[in-house]
Design a protein around this nucleic acid. Structure first.
Length: 376
RNA sequence: GGGCAGUUACCAGAGUGGCCAAAUGGGGCUGACUGUAACUCAGCUGUUUUAAACUUCGGUGGUUCGAAUCCAUCACUGCCCA
């Protein structure tokens, strides 16, 4: 994998780059749609490709390991083939499930034991076997197993949690270097910076990770309950240290505003369930602000979903129709909202990239922030 | 014509003397959602902007300290028998 920095903004840390993988080149900054169990919910691969113009999507190790299981994925020849997607894929390690399924997991030095949310069966994830599983899934970018520390964690807990994550990281990197990809193309292993909202922990974490000199680096444990200002502050602290010639991936973030603020602070890659999940729940993001499609005011608004929106669905359908689909629980409503939101997110990062290259990112961002903060 | 059952909020429907502005579900309104156990979750849904109070349970009249609940009567609806 190769990362090329094309432009760096003069007034900020924002950068535009190219990330080359064996499944194609990714133009950064980039938003990556989340396809947890091997599908971006309610969106066809063809729409993902042709309409949304996704360049890379996510899968999740924990979920894919439980279903369909590693055997099936190996028989299929890897996730790309299984799902019919020949562009890059990134898999999260299950670190987020350590956080989100905290009721059914136990952390130990060796790794983390989960109770399956499906049948209650017990499973052990270790830094090593997660690498193995991710080798079997065959994503282009695979993530280290970490503990995603809650945003409101006490210092002592955050410190211990970080130390465990770092010990896991050592083991994971070692195992990654000792193993080979299974499907004839390269995989890159991204370590994850933790440290909650504590600058010294974040610094320490970033320094150790910078030393490893992996193909790219991730910032995790943000947008998990801490104030947005803290998140921005942590990004600044971390990006001061993480190598400039490697892509930086801010995990699980976020709102359109979060994306712009993070891009300004030197982040290159994002993923978030927000465009798809909120879309399914009737919320639309547009360049003029957000809309709750269940609101009565759209009932007889026959204007396009978004005039000059990023997707064909924006002009193919009216607000009134989308509201109707949403209110009646029609599947088409989930599809339209998901396509719209993802197309908007991809448009937003593409536009950011364009303005970084043009050298007017900051003024564009200020204006954009104003627009997207509206409530329509 | 006779018999029986029924009429409760937007809809369906519980409640059969005080704990009832009235269960529950649906519908509706408004929020929330950040590396997806999420087509999910929360609040509100008689009126008065809150407190508190006021007006309601087909209509009218009555019994009672007190009625959605008991009685009388009228109206309407459904089912059954002619």
């Amino acid at each position: 994998m190769q990362f090329t920095l094309q432009h760096t903004d003069l007034k900020s840390q924002a950068r535009a780059g190219l990330l080359q993988t064996d499944h194609g080149t990714i133009e950064t900054p980039i938003f990556m749609p989340v396809g947890t169990v091997g599908s971006v919910k309610a969106v066809h691969q063809r729409e993902l490709n042709d309409d949304i113009k996704a360049q890379i999507i996510l899968g999740n190790t924990y979920h894919l390991y439980l279903r369909p299981g590693i055997n099936i994925l190996e028989k299929a020849g890897g996730l790309h083939k299984f799902i019919g997607w020949d562009k890059p894929i990134l898999t999260d390690s299950g670190g987020f499930q350590v956080f989100s399924l905290s009721d059914t997991r136990k952390l130990k030095e060796e790794g983390v034991t989960f109770r399956s949310h499906i049948d209650g069966s017990k499973h052990l994830f270790t830094p090593e076997n997660v690498v193995d599983i991710e080798r079997s899934i065959g994503a282009d970018i695979i993530m280290a197993l970490d503990e995603c520390t809650p945003g409101d964690a006490e210092y002592n807990y955050a410190k211990k949690s970080l130390e465990l994550t770092l010990r896991w990281l050592d083991r994971g990197v070692k195992h990654f270097r000792e193993t080979e990809p299974k499907y004839g193309y390269n995989q890159s292993y991204f370590p994850i910076v933790q440290g909650c909202v504590y600058p010294d922990l974040r610094k320490k974490s970033a320094e150790i990770i910078a030393e490893l000199d992996m193909d790219g680096n991730a910032i995790g444990g943000l947008a998990v309950g801490e104030p947005a200002e803290k998140m921005y502050e942590m990004i600044e602290v971390v990006n001061e240290i993480l190598p400039k010639n490697k892509p930086r991936y801010l995990m699980g973030v976020g709102t359109p505003e979060n994306l712009l603020e993070a891009i300004e602070r030197g982040v290159d890659m994002f993923d978030c369930v927000m465009p798809t999940r909120n879309g399914r729940n009737g919320m639309l993001f547009t360049k003029n602000g957000t809309m709750n499609m269940r609101n009565l005011k759209w009932a007889d608004d026959f204007s396009p979903i978004e005039e000059d929106g990023a997707s064909y669905v924006d002009t193919a359908y009216s607000k009134a129709y989308l509201r109707h689909l949403t209110m009646t629980g029609e599947l088409l409503g989930l599809q339209i909202a998901s396509i719209h939101n993802l197309a908007f997110y991809l448009w937003l990062t593409k536009e950011a990239r364009k303005h970084i290259i043009e050298g007017n990112f900051s003024s564009w961002k200020i204006n954009m922030l104003k627009q997207i903060s509206n409530r329509l």
